[in-house]
């Protein structure tokens, strides 16, 4: 399992969510979504806690958490690069953009840079087809990318993070 670290999470943060959904059957996905909002990812102790509180067997919680692409079992970098994998982006060269990101950061889909700054995630169509190829970083959309402009964006973000720290 690629999920294990020994961090201890603050389980009180999820209490309200669990109370809210307790009486609504079939709410596991919604609870996991909230949990991910709260913790940034799904820590193993949180998953275990959710299983206990909802009565859904841990094997099933894990099954759901690993089925949907939205859920992450590992923390992500400061910047989450969501690279659109839509058809229009493909036709307009998203493959080259992915290559550029990999060249620049040395990470592939699903990986995080060693400095914890960037995580690359290929995502389903973002629906900005007229701006393709597109990536979205922490909610900001970057469209009509070229390999070069992509690298520029990444360098600017890295610089910004460097100044901040």
């Amino acid at each position: 399992m690629d999920c294990c670290n020994n961090k201890v999470s603050d389980l009180t943060l999820i209490k309200e969510t669990l109370d809210h959904y307790k009486s609504i059957p079939g709410s596991l996905i919604a609870i996991l979504q909230k949990a991910q909002d709260i913790y940034g990812y799904l820590p193993i102790d949180v998953i275990y806690h959710i299983a206990e509180e909802t009565g859904v067997a841990p094997a099933n919680v894990m099954g759901v958490a690993t089925f949907y692409t939205q859920f992450r079992l590992k923390p992500v970098g400061k910047y989450l690069i969501m690279l659109c994998q839509g058809t229009a982006c493909h036709v307009n060269g998203s493959g080259l953009i992915e290559q550029a990101i990999t060249d620049e950061l040395g990470i592939e889909d699903g990986e995080t840079t060693e400095d914890g700054l960037f995580t690359l995630k290929n995502v389903a169509c973002l629906g900005c087809c007229s701006l393709s190829p597109v990536m979205m970083i922490n909610g900001e959309t970057y469209g009509s990318l070229t390999p070069d402009s992509t690298k520029t964006v990444l360098r600017q973000l890295a610089e910004k993070a460097g100044e901040a720290s």
């Binding site: 399992m1 294990c4 193993i44 275990y48 299983a51 067997a57 841990p58 094997a59 099933n60 894990m62 099954g63 690993t66 089925f67």
Partner: peptide, 23 residues
């Protein structure tokens, strides 16, 4: 009536997995 094992991941990567060792 137990749920000791379940599916993990999806698609070609799907495997049967138990829940975690800590339980």
């Amino acid at each position: 009536g137990k749920t000791f094992i379940g599916l993990y991941n999806r698609g070609f990567e799907t495997v049967i997995n138990p829940m975690f060792p800590r339980i």
